[in-house]
Amino acid sequence: MLDLFTSLWHYRGFVFSSIRNEFVARFVRSRLGAIWMILNPLAQVTIYALILSAVLAAKLPGIDNRYAYAIYLTAGILAWTLFSEIVLRSVTLFIENGNLMKKIMFPRIALPTITVGSCLLNNVMLLLAILIIFTLLGHPPAAALLWLPFLTLITVALAVGFGMILGVLNVFIRDIGQVVPIGLQFLFWFTPIVYPVSIIPERLQHWLLLNPVYPVVHAYQNVLVYHAPPDFKKLALVALVSLGLMTLGLFMFRKAGPEMVDAL
C-alpha cells in the first residue's frame, strides 16, 4: 500500500502539470475557457430558481433574504457538482486512458488523482463565483465558511469511494457506465437540493438517512445559508462510510490492476 503512495509522490510533478494542462487546454480555443465549467452549474441554479422559487420560497424558514431560495439552491448545487463530477469522470477514467495504460508504465493511481485535482480546481472556482454572487444578493460570507474545506474533504472522499469502485467495475462491465448517470439523476432528486427537507412528510424523512450524500449537502446548506456549524454526528457517519468505500475501491483497484489492461 505504501509503495502506491510513494510512486504517486514521485509522479507529483506529472499530476500537477496534468491538472494545469487540462485547465490551460480549456482556455486555448474557447473565449470563456474554464468559465464554462462554473457557468454550467450557475445556469442550472438560475433555471431551478426561476421555475421553482414561486412554489418553494415560502417554505424556507430561518433566513431573511428575498433570494433565500436561490441561495439555498446554490449551496446544495456546489456540493452536488463536486460529488457528481468526480463520480462521473471516475467511471470512464480507466476506459478513456486505456491506450495510455496499455503502452506506458506509470503509477495508475495518478489518473484518479488528476481527476480529483481537476474537479477540486473547478469547485474552488465555482465557490469563488458563488461567494461573489452571494455578496451581491446581500448575503456576505461569514466565519462559518471555514468549515468548507472540511466538508469538501468528506465530499471528495465519498465521491472517490464510489468513483473508484464503479470505475474499476466499468472496465469489465461496461453497463455500469450507462447506469451511473441515471443513478445520479435519481440520487439528485432524492436529495433535498432543489427542495427543502421540510416538504418531505415526516414519516418518510428517516429514509433520507440511507442517502449518504444528504448529510454532506445538508452541511453545505447549513454553512453557506445559515452560517451554522454542520451536524457532526451525521457527518462522522458519512466519513466512516466514505472511508469504507475508499478502502473497498482501493482494494478492487489493486486486485483488478493486472487484469485491467487485458480488458481494455
Binding site: 503502452k103 508504465m105 490492476g257 487484469e259 489492461v261 487485458d262
Partner: peptide, 8 residues
Amino acid sequence: KMVTGTLR
C-alpha cells in the same frame, strides 16, 4: 508489453 511492465 510485459517487458515494459504494462501487462502483468
